[in-house]
Simulated scan of single mutants.
Amino acid sequence: MVKKVIFFEVQGGNDKGPDGYRKDTMPMVNALKQRGQDAEVIFFDVTKQDEIFNYVKDHGIAYVSRINPGNLKHEAEYFTMLRELCAMGVIGMPHPDAMIGYGSKDVLSKLVSTNLVPDDTFAYYTMEAFKAQFPTSLANTERVLKQNRGSTGEGIWRVKLVNPLAKGVTEVPLDAEIKCTEAKDNHVEYWKLGEFMTFCEQYITGANGMLIDMRFLPRITEGEIRLFMLRDKPVHVVHKKPADAEDAFSATLFSGAQYRYDAPEDWEELVQNFLIQLPLVTSLLGNYDLPLIWTADFMLDTNGAGEDCYILGEMNCSCVGFTSALTLAHQVAEEILACIAEQTQILA
């Protein structure tokens, strides 16, 4: 029996076309079929989980997850099913734990031993840890706090002291006034530090709750640089320049950022440094195979020698879209076939 590549989707959500599928899913299915590899789409439904599992176990050689976790009510059950499929020999693109490892904001704190992330980057999983460290972080430099959940800049705050600290003070008092700008739309709010930290408890509590605390990089105004990757191959670069406004630091379209699409060759220094680091990144994130389709976002900084360097701000592999360049479906299909060939050879 010739086995299929199964694309997992979920019904509903604002990422679907008129036919009910993501706009970039059927182009991949069709590109595989053109190359002689059968493929189909299955909509995950927790009430049919056992039926879906058995079908894919028997008929699937690999799966490609095209589900945005924000559109999935039963994420834990979905990931459990994917783990079981991988354990049964179905090739995961990506493995669910790779999806979590590469997609969670705390990827930054896990990569501080690379040259991609500053060593004063912290992950907070409890309010106690947040309260113990953040006033000291803020005393040293302007900060950015990032929640793990949410999207389009929601719950990502640039935090700045309104008044400088007295000389020698190494911890910001809880009654100090701070200026907070949210990346969602670059709006500004003023808080007392202690009250703002209490407000941030919503980001830490609950499933997958955490906050990442990293230094603010002023050169974000020059643009965020997104590498669009197919496994270990950079395909294109999106340069995302924030709106030209005093407090603007968000690189989302919603906030008014301007996007430009470049070739990887236009960013050779960034690309080559990242590719050199990939084996270490893979090791630090659990030694899973690289995701099929994923992105890495960088910001410009200046090192101690006064040279340009690039700081990792986020990675994403849950369901990276390419609806603005659907011809990429053919390259994706080639990568899927290459991955199947590699895994089949390893098992043989």
Rank of each mutant, 00 (worst) to 15 (best):
P27V: 08
L290G: 10
L111S: 05
T302Q: 04
V107A: 10
P69E: 11
E75T: 11
T170N: 12
G155T: 04
K16F: 04
Y203Q: 10
Q37D: 01
I212W: 04
F134G: 07
A123W: 01
I100N: 07
A183D: 08
R215N: 11
K48G: 02
E334K: 12
N140R: 14
I220D: 01
L253T: 11
I340N: 01
E314V: 05
L227Y: 00
N54M: 08
S324D: 15
T295C: 13
P279N: 03
V2Y: 10
V46L: 06
D24E: 14
T323A: 14
P242M: 11
P118R: 09
C339I: 11
S137K: 05
T198R: 11
M93I: 10
I212C: 06
T80P: 01
N30Y: 12
D15Y: 14
G286K: 07
C309Y: 08
Y78M: 09
G36V: 05
I204Y: 10
S104K: 13
F196Y: 15
N71Y: 14
G306W: 10
V238P: 02
G150F: 00
L328N: 08
A123S: 15
E222P: 02
D289C: 06
A76L: 10
E128C: 04
A257M: 07
S137W: 02
A263D: 12
E142V: 09
F199L: 09
P135R: 01
A166H: 11
Q147A: 14
K105Y: 04
T327C: 04
S324W: 09
A62V: 04
M299R: 01
E265H: 05
V162P: 03
A39K: 00
I178Y: 06
E342Y: 09
P218S: 00
L211N: 07
G36C: 03
F254E: 07
Q49K: 15
M81C: 09
A166R: 11
P242W: 06
T198L: 13
A76D: 12
D175E: 14
D213K: 00
K57I: 03
D106G: 03
E268N: 11
T302G: 01
G89K: 00
F8N: 01
L165D: 05
R143N: 08
F298V: 05
K16N: 12
A207N: 07
L32H: 00
D50E: 15
D120A: 08
L347P: 02
K179M: 13
F322C: 03
F134E: 10
Y124M: 13
E269R: 13
C180S: 12
A207S: 05
Y125C: 03
L72N: 11
D266Q: 13
Y125W: 11
V188T: 15
D50N: 14
V5D: 03
R22D: 13
E307V: 04
L290H: 07
G92L: 12
G13V: 07
V41Y: 00
T327R: 09
L337I: 14
V237K: 07
T25R: 02
I336H: 02
N140T: 08
K192Q: 15
K16S: 06
K192D: 06
K167E: 15
T136H: 15
M99Q: 15
E222C: 08
F53N: 07
Q133N: 14
P27Q: 07
P69M: 06
E51I: 09
P242Y: 10
Q34S: 12
R22H: 13
E40F: 01
